[in-house]
């Protein structure tokens, strides 16, 4: 189980304070959505979780241990673009995760190990609905397919935390709905926490268990340089979503459109006969 703790983190670029006093505890198996206006530092925050950037002050811990100062296999990532490798096929892209991890000096697997890794990769690709495109190159895929591929590729490394940087921002609305469904399914099935940056509020509430808003508390022109953004809202999404339990909190027999209104699942009919 993966607890992420962020303790009094600041990020400054020279004079410019970007983020200040960020304190956050993320419970295991959460799906946290980070929202906020552009330039509020939410992507910077995600990059610090990824160790692409280092906090100026403060600590970030996973399960009580400070994160490594460089990106590593405990934290997977899907970016908005350029997450997949253009020189590898769809299968090759997912296989690469297994090969880099277990392939030794050559970064390649052979024989039985390769066959097993291939099966695992094919299974993941099946789960994201790309089993028909195993031999295609990323440039031949649509944007939505590329992002599904990026998800499968990140998942084969079995990360404790999956970081998503506006992963669905560039997709058409219709495709985005499909990928949302997939994303929720993957979160239920894989034992990981997810932290997602998005500028789309409905997406945040649609997928997350918790929505965290970043904003600048002081935003006058003369204050902007020395005051960074911090967490302004921390909202638990209701009804609650529970990882691994897609049906949680849902009525197994939801009323149909023309059914009478109900209270606590009981028919609420003002039939005098019932009252008697």
């Amino acid at each position: 189980m993966t607890q992420i703790s962020v303790r009094d983190v600041w990020k400054e670029y020279g004079e410019q304070v970007v983020l200040e006093r960020i304190n956050l505890e993320i419970a295991p198996r959460s799906f946290v959505a980070l929202v906020g206006p552009s330039g509020c530092g939410k992507t910077t925050f995600l990059r610090m979780l990824l160790s692409q950037e280092v906090p100026t002050r403060g600590d970030i811990l996973i399960d009580g241990v400070p994160i490594s100062p460089e990106p590593g296999p405990d934290r997977g990532v899907v970016f908005q673009r350029y997450s997949v490798f253009p020189h590898l096929t769809v299968l090759g892209n997912v296989l690469l995760g297994a090969e880099l991890k277990g392939g030794g000096v050559l970064g390649r697997l052979f024989g039985t190990a390769r066959r097993q890794a291939k099966e695992e990769a094919a299974k993941l690709l099946d789960a994201v609905g790309l089993s028909h495109a195993l031999d295609k190159y990323p440039a031949q895929l649509s944007g939505g397919m590329q992002q599904r591929l990026a998800l499968a590729q990140a998942l084969i490394a079995k990360p404790k935390v999956l970081l998503l940087d506006e992963p669905f921002g560039a997709l058409d609305p219709g495709i985005r709905g499909d990928v949302h469904k997939l994303m929720r399914k993957l979160w239920h099935e894989h034992p990981m926490s997810v932290v997602m940056v998005t500028h789309d509020l409905s997406e945040a509430f649609h997928l997350g268990t918790r929505v965290i808003a970043f904003d600048r508390r002081r935003n006058l022109p003369e204050e902007r340089l020395r005051y960074g953004a911090s967490i302004t809202n921390d909202i638990e999404v209701w009804p609650r979503r529970v990882a691994g339990n897609p049906g949680f909190g849902k009525d197994p027999n939801p009323p149909r459109r023309d059914d009478p209104a109900t209270v606590d699942g009981q028919p609420d009919r003002d039939d005098p006969a019932d009252a008697a």
């Binding site: 990106p71 990532v77 970016f79 350029y82 997450s83 490798f85 392939g103 970064g107 590729q153």
Partner: peptide, 19 residues
């Protein structure tokens, strides 16, 4: 992003270079 991504897949400097 590609170099970051490769690191999150467990690559080291050498395997990033060759793969």
């Amino acid at each position: 992003q590609q170099l970051i991504k490769a690191q999150t897949l467990g690559a080291n400097s050498w395997t990033i270079a060759i793969r």
